[in-house]
């Protein structure tokens, strides 16, 4: 029997919730996907989609009052959620690293950049000397395109774009298998944004790590990822390779999203918005989460939440319109 090759990362049935005074919010519901070495996965969603919570779950860092309710996250066969405290700490930054959204607040303002690296490297590899850590940092700076002298600066002395590069350098310092970038370009201008994304791509080519791009910008993930997960109200509503998602957009939400973004290369564009409002996670509707905004609703949509249907190789859609296909 041919053994199916193990994926680098396999997420199965992940569910996470927040319990606060106002009530219980299910941020991520039954999310499953896989990621392979060298692959770029785009996770796209708007407010309430759960994409950030998903990212944080992968390094077991969902902030209180949130918690992961069920599911498994297998990194090279090991369940991340079942690791002890020490091993989890070791995982973060070393096997999976996370680039946070806002470079302004993610760096310690009273520490020089070099100290960030020293701290990071020596926490995970205590035998490395300070001098060696700094040497490694300088090399990373070259990789990400910052002049090595800047290593002595404080965060406030660097521009937004540079800070984001520092974050990326920190993310790569320990040679992780997976880099998760949460809205890596939202706080940046469009030219810097393009450069950062190009940088991530070239680093990926060089080091072979897997990249997970979490963003609300569908253009970015279509342009730069191998496969895409579209999230809505905590669920995956569509999952497909990028080219397939572009040519065969199936879920009404994905279709609506694609039709609402202006494409600078098209001449006369008629844009349409998706009616309604973002999902109310405190009072979710019964049945499909998207039905209040959907043009194609059928009776069943208001009663039963659709499972993910497999409509093609690697193409999954959570919509009753595709119930004829095999259930995936």
């Amino acid at each position: 029997m041919i053994q199916k090759p193990q994926h680098l990362l396999t997420v199965e049935g992940l569910t996470a919730e927040y319990c606060a005074q106002r009530g219980r919010i299910i941020a991520v519901e039954d999310v499953s996907f896989s990621l392979d070495k060298g692959e770029t996965l785009g996770v796209v969603g708007e407010s309430g989609s759960g994409k950030s919570t998903l990212g944080l779950s992968l390094i077991h860092l969902v902030p209180y009052p949130g918690r992961i309710v069920k599911g498994t996250i297998l990194l090279e066969g090991q369940n991340v959620l079942k690791l002890g405290k020490e091993k989890t700490r070791d995982l973060r930054g070393r096997r999976i690293s996370y680039v946070f959204q806002d470079p302004m607040t993610s760096l310690n303002p009273v520490e020089r950049i070099k100290d960030h690296f020293v701290e990071l490297i020596r926490t995970h590899e205590p035998k490395v000397t300070k001098a060696d850590a700094i040497t490694r940092a300088r090399k990373l700076f070259k990789d990400v395109g910052i002049q090595p002298e800047r290593i002595d600066d404080y965060p406030h002395q660097l521009s937004g774009g540079m800070r984001q590069r520092v974050m990326i350098a920190l993310a790569l310092a320990l040679d992780p298998s997976i880099v998760i970038a949460d809205e890596p370009t939202t706080a940046l201008d469009v030219i810097v944004q393009a450069k950062i994304l190009d940088l991530l791509k070239s680093l990926q080519n060089r080091y072979g790590m897997a990249l997970m791009l979490i963003t609300h910008d569908l253009s970015i993930v279509l342009e730069r990822s191998d496969k895409i997960i579209v999230m809505y109200a905590g669920r995956i509503v569509e999952q497909a390779p990028s080219s397939t998602l572009y040519t065969h957009t199936q879920h009404p939400y994905s279709q609506g999203l694609l039709k609402s973004i202006p494409n600078i290369e098209l001449e006369e564009q008629k844009l349409t918005a998706i009616g309604g409002s973002p999902p109310d996670l405190l009072h979710p509707p019964i049945g499909c989460q998207f039905w209040p905004r959907c043009q194609y609703i059928m009776e069943i949509c208001k009663i039963k939440e659709p499972p993910l249907f497999k409509t093609g190789i690697d193409h999954l859609v959570r919509c009753h319109l595709y119930a004829g296909e095999t259930s995936g």
Partner: peptide, 25 residues
């Protein structure tokens, strides 16, 4: 020109090169 070339376009595998712009603002 650089600004326009940097804007992400929602089409996969575009053979577009972002125009090189040195340095920062």
């Amino acid at each position: 020109q650089a600004l326009l070339s940097a804007i992400p376009v929602p089409t996969p595998e575009r053979k577009k090169k972002t125009l090189e712009l040195k340095g920062e603002v």
